[in-house]
Simulated scan of single mutants.
Amino acid sequence: MDIGAAAWLVILLALVLANLPFFNERVFALLPFAFSAAHGTGQAPSKPFLVRLLELAVLYFAVGGIGRALEGRIGTVFPQTWEFYAISACMFIVLAFPGFVVRYLRKRH
C-alpha cells in the first residue's frame, strides 16, 4: 500500500469510527447496552452521553494504533510530540460532529 492510499484509509476510518458511537445504541456496535432503569418501561435502553464519549476516546486510540501500524509498514515511524496528539484528537472530535448533530441537535417529528 502506498502512502497516499494509507493516508486516505486512515482518514476514512477515522470518519466512520468517530461517528459510530452516535449512530447506534450498542457499545462499539457489538455489545448491547443494558441499563436497569430502562427495563420494564417498554423502551429500548439508550446509551448515556458519557458512555458515548468514552467510546469515542477508545475509538480515537484504535484509529491512532491503526495509523501507526500502517506508518510502520510503509517505513519509519516518526516520533510525535503532544502537539500532534492534541491536534489529532481535535480533528477526531470535528469528524464526530455529523453524528452528534444527528443524535442530539436534529428535530424529531
Rank of each mutant, 00 (worst) to 15 (best):
G4P: 02
G4W: 11
A6I: 04
A6V: 10
W8G: 00
L12C: 09
L12A: 10
L13P: 02
L15R: 00
L17Q: 05
A18S: 15
E25M: 03
E25V: 05
F28L: 13
F28P: 06
F28C: 06
A29N: 12
L30I: 14
L31E: 06
A34V: 15
A37D: 06
A38H: 10
H39M: 13
G40L: 08
T41Y: 10
G42W: 11
P45Q: 08
S46H: 13
K47P: 04
P48C: 14
V51C: 04
L53W: 10
L53Q: 12
L54Q: 00
L54I: 07
E55K: 05
L56T: 06
V58M: 05
V58T: 09
V58P: 04
V63L: 01
G64K: 06
G65K: 03
I66S: 00
G67R: 11
G72T: 03
R73V: 02
R73G: 13
I74F: 12
G75Q: 04
T76V: 13
T76D: 08
T76S: 12
T76R: 11
T76H: 09
F78I: 08
F78Q: 10
P79E: 15
Q80L: 15
E83S: 10
F84L: 06
I87E: 06
I87H: 02
C90Y: 01
M91E: 05
V94A: 12
V94Q: 01
L95V: 06
P98D: 09
P98C: 11
G99L: 14
Y104K: 07
L105C: 13
R106W: 14
R108T: 13
R108W: 09
